[in-house]
Design a protein around this nucleic acid. Structure first.
Lengths: 179, 179
DNA sequence: AAGAGATAGTTGCATACGCAAGGAGTGGCG
DNA sequence: CGCCACTCCTTGCGTATGCAACTATCTCTT
């Protein structure tokens, strides 16, 4: 597509780079997620929330941490968890030593579904990246992206574990839905 | 998380990378834009639309192209242009040789505002990237991002042949600008 | 021990977005 | 020449999200 050499070397244009990142984010959302989302019957960004959860220790996360990671406001996250809880994929668990706090935790069904989903998701991503980046490059890009993330979205980086899960972790299932 | 030590090649974790990209996109939206958006009185992603426009030849773009670039559906873009037109930043122009098509074009006021806005925007971005990436790295990252974009969001990359806005219907004028 | 201030999460309201249907225009093909 | 399929944009409707206000809880200060 780049014909000959319209530009001497190339744009040292950061506006373009930002545009690329936004396009990629949108493209990923629209390329990777929808099949799985439709299948599970969940909404737009709910799968992102689930992925954050399944990759967290104990498959659970404080709502505020989850909100930061998923780039949602507290209110947006509350609604998302409501939706996921209605599907029995997630439930809310109180936090022993800080009764303000609430954990969102994958239910047993949620963990089952996500095991399957993550296999698909990871293989899709492997196909994508294997084809596009060679290993050294990928490492470098990831490092750069991490630095960028730490700068523009520091809250998402902070993996707080301030409130300890003093409750026996994952007493799962049964009839967990509680609002 | 990582100390700071040069890890061998650890991250074969593409899920993390995708997460980083999504966090960065959200972080950029929430870090860079809001000040300007509030000041101009525009909504969430309207500034992105304006930036796409000001960087296009003739400061105008077909609505469908703009939609692809901004990762909006046609309907979303229609509303966005409505908002921007109500602020006299953009107007709609018909296309001579295809009367289905419509251009969104920056108004004079829009161009004035965007000259100012882009100075701010670019300097913010320069501060950010100068600090975070060294030149060779930035080059490599941008290339990788472009490949990724071409793969997950090909429509955003495609630049439609400009149909002449108000001149003889024959050949086109500007060079296709590449993101 | 009490109160000020901060933090966690939920709710009401306004808005932006996507999806699907609709109307206008173009191009091909018999 | 006229029909049909396709593209471009707009509109109606449902939903997701952010903001601001509110409650509950924790923490720090006095």
């Amino acid at each position: 597509m780049d014909g000959g050499l319209p530009m001497p070397v190339r744009t040292h244009d950061r506006v373009t780079t930002v545009g690329l990142i936004l396009e990629i984010a949108a493209g990923l959302r629209k390329t990777i997620n929808p099949a799985i989302e439709k299948e599970l019957g969940l909404g737009s960004r709910d799968l992102e929330v689930l992925i954050r959860l399944v990759r967290s220790p104990g498959k659970r996360l404080r709502l505020s941490d989850l909100a930061a990671q998923a780039a949602l406001t507290p209110s947006g996250l509350t609604r998302a968890i409501d939706r996921l809880a209605a599907l029995n994929l997630v439930d809310r668990q109180g936090c022993q030593n800080d009764r303000r706090g609430t954990y969102a935790a994958l239910t047993r069904r949620g963990r089952q579904q996500m095991r399957r989903v993550m296999r698909i998701h990871e293989s899709q991503l492997d196909d994508l990246f294997d084809e596009l980046l060679d290993p050294g490059e990928e490492q470098l890009v990831t490092d750069a992206l991490r630095r960028l993330r730490d700068r523009v979205s520091p809250d998402a980086a902070a993996v707080a574990a301030p409130c300890l899960p003093s409750k026996p972790p994952t007493h799962d299932e049964g009839s967990p839905i509680r609002a």
